[in-house]
Write a protein that binds this DNA or RNA. Structure first.
Lengths: 113, 113
DNA sequence: ATTTTATATCGCAAATATACGATGAATTGT
DNA sequence: ACAATTCATCGTATATTTGCGATATAAAAT
């Protein structure tokens, strides 16, 4: 692999790709779903709902936290996680880039597509 | 890695993760943007817009095609690509799962988050 | 028929991601 | 103080992704 080609892409392309990568694993989607279904933070319980070892779940949580999709604090014995909806909705809104373009762009060629 | 833990996750979780994985690289986001900006199919031109070798771009196109996000036909000497907006919008709509939940779910704990 | 052009595919190397047991750190309960 | 609990981190094995040169394929141009 060449040395960091990322610089050649635009910032918004990288940002959207990073968001997509953060949720590109079923476990992380499942974690977000579990968190979304709770009105308040979850302190534990996540590991039990997933078919993965505690260490692995902790690693997935770390990734979601790294990109800012979830917030978490350590409260005494347990940790406490919840979704940062501001960040989440901001990322989803980025798909608007395509939604806007889709109005004008449609393939008019009969021979292909 | 264990042997295909995917079976332990739900179908919609896997589907959303697969979509995210397909667009989890700046090059593939860039390709979609290029395609979206055109009213009709693009026959070539994509390689020139990216900082990658032709073989690499072809591989990224293949991935986008595999998940159905883009359609492509070979027309004589050149290939012809365009976005399948139906598939694209269908995937984006999946984020509705979270949007619905976000209305009820918000952290009420003062101590965390 | 041969060359040129456009794109796909193969094969390999390097980089990343994933999973998990073992261990560490901090806290609660006794 | 000590044991139990909860979660993070380390180390490591394996799998997947990425990138690209080389090569294949197929049509167009000469």
């Amino acid at each position: 692999m060449a040395i960091n080609r990322k610089m050649d892409f635009q910032a918004d392309e990288i940002a959207l790709a990073d968001f997509a990568k953060a949720i590109s694993h079923p476990a992380r989607i499942a974690i977000l779903k579990i968190l979304a279904q709770h009105k308040s933070c979850i302190c534990g319980e996540i590991v039990e709902g997933l078919p993965l070892a505690q260490a692995t779940v902790s690693q997935h949580l770390k990734e979601l936290k790294a990109i800012g999709l979830i917030k978490g604090t350590i409260e005494g014995k347990t940790s406490c996680y919840c979704i940062d909806w501001g960040v989440f909705n901001q990322f989803v809104a980025h798909f608007g880039i395509f939604a806007d373009l889709s109005k004008n762009a449609s393939c008019q060629s009969q021979s292909c597509c």
